[in-house]
């Protein structure tokens, strides 16, 4: 049921998104006060602060928002698909496949485009592998999918460890940053925004069905849902979002698991709200985390994946505690 308090929640999330993006643009080692920021956004100039804003902060902020939105969206979808509150975008091994691809690229001294491409290919290999094995006997059960994903994930983990232990110290540093999730090399373009928007639109189109599917496969079938085609669509859309997010920023943890639960705890259980809400909150969350990651111990940078956990854990526990009494 969409009631007025849901609109209120969505409005609050939009405001949060705008505020977090502004804060991110304001923070950094080069001073850029608010009036000047607005000026620069409206009338670009060639000053140092203008260049920092346009070439460093803005792209990175947008990359953080897009990645966070994709991960949170993929998290919601995975949690419904697997009917498991512990599911996150990485549970079926997508990040493992991407990591092996990315680490291999680092091992061979390749960066930039190569790194993203190998990561993406690794993710897709994993997606197809899990789907192929779980789907082998026609009907795929949630349990089989989950077990296949977890086992494939463990396999990738072993390969990652081999790559880490046999690489030079220099490479290991870059590899660890990638594994923890890092936005310092990230940039996003039109395709990425389009994918995020397409993900939200797909999620909204499926949202009524998601509300039903989460109550069980039999119930959903009884209420007229073709669960097989729905599940395949969910699997591939969540996978594509995750693979893309991982390609942009490495395996940033925690966003995809916790953001949907934060919203559920705040009362947004209807997927018509949860889908757009997660994209907004996930984006804002990663933007804030990344602002902290690049300013907390400046000039050193922290991997953003560490910060998501450090601020996410207490934030989640506070919400959990304040709602548990009801």
């Amino acid at each position: 049921m969409i009631a007025s308090r849901y609109y209120l929640l969505l409005t609050a999330l939009v405001m949060l998104a705008l505020v977090s993006i502004l804060l991110s643009l304001l923070s950094g080692s080069v001073e850029l006060p608010f009036p000047e920021l607005i000026n620069e956004l409206l009338q670009p100039s060639d000053t140092l602060s203008g260049q920092v804003l346009r070439e460093i902060r803005l792209p990175r902020t947008l990359a953080a928002f897009t990645t966070g939105g994709m991960l949170a969206l993929a998290g919601v979808i995975m949690q419904v698909l697997l009917r498991n509150p512990l599911a996150d975008p990485y549970i079926l091994g997508i990040s493992g496949g991407a990591a092996v691809g990315a680490l291999a690229a680092i091992l061979f001294g390749l960066g930039g485009w190569w790194l993203s491409s190998t990561a993406f290919v690794g993710a897709l290999v994993s997606v197809l592998l899990v789907f192929g094995i779980a789907n082998k006997f026609g009907r795929w059960s949630v349990t089989r999918l989950l077990l296949t994903g977890v086992v494939i994930s463990a396999g990738w983990g072993a390969v990652i460890n081999i790559l880490l232990t046999t690489s030079s110290t220099n490479n290991v540093q870059s590899m660890l940053f990638w594994l923890m999730g890092d936005l310092s090399q990230s940039s996003v373009g039109g395709g990425h925004y389009l994918l995020l928007i397409a993900g939200i639109v797909f999620g909204l189109l499926a949202s009524r069905s998601l509300n039903v599917l989460i109550r069980g496969e039999l119930v959903a079938t009884g209420l007229g849902i073709e669960i097989n085609s729905l599940r395949i669509a969910l699997y591939f859309s969540a996978s594509l979002l995750t693979a893309t997010a991982v390609t942009i920023a490495g395996s940033v943890g925690f966003v995809g698991l916790v953001v949907p639960h934060m919203l559920r705890l705040l009362g947004a259980r209807d997927h018509r709200i949860l889908i757009p809400g997660s994209a907004l909150l996930g984006g804002s969350f990663l933007v804030i985390a990344d602002s902290i990651a690049r300013t907390a111990v400046a000039p050193q940078q922290l991997p953003v994946g560490v910060v998501t956990a450090i601020i996410g854990v207490p934030a989640f526990l506070i919400i959990l505690r304040s709602t548990i009494r009801k």
Binding site: M1, R83, N84, P85, R208, S209, N211, V212, I214, R215, G216, L218, V219, L223, G224, I225, R264, R269, D270
Partner: peptide
Amino acid sequence: EGMHAMPSTVLETVLIGRHP
């Protein structure tokens, strides 16, 4: 068999019956 995995209220659950 039962059907409740995620938290939900009684009214929300009954409204699900209107899905078709």
